[in-house]
Amino acid sequence: MDKVFEIYKQLEEKNVLLSFKGMITSELLTTILQIMESKMDHMDEKPKVKRKVFNILVECLQNLYHHIDQEDIVHVPTEDKSALLMIAKGDGEYTITTGNYMKSSDMEVLKTKLDLVNGMDKDELKAYYKKVLNEGSLSSKGTAGLGMIDIARKSGEKLDYNFTSINEITTFFSLAVKIAE
């Protein structure tokens, strides 16, 4: 039972407002968004910050949601078909952290995209967003390829990410997005 207090202390130290590990469903997304909205209302958060956190959270959650959708073809054990979400508020900034399993074969494409986005300034991100919005089409799942660009644009900070190799076919992807107040 000591572990419980350890977990509690860790969450406390990191100023975690909300954390979740498990299956990401559409209903869960609705609930998480409602909880975060009322939390920020409660904290009397500035409307501008509230909107940014909400917007970025929507994109992060939907990335997780659509990813889970794919996982039937990855053949990871059932207990691994879940994702991690953490929202923390520390020193003048919010941090949204996500973690999820993905296909190792998809890693390069994602890494290239993240590095590309991280190498862009505000104006370049705007131009890139507009280009993808204008030219690209939606996948059958309704994903636009705009998510990471939008997250980077609204965050205004570099996206912090990491890939942890589990085995040849599976990799764990972690992403941390900062939103300054």
Partner: peptide, 9 residues
């Protein structure tokens, strides 16, 4: 609010 998938629509 609108998400990126809605912006395409």
């Amino acid at each position: 609010y609108f998400n990126t998938s809605s912006s395409k629509c």
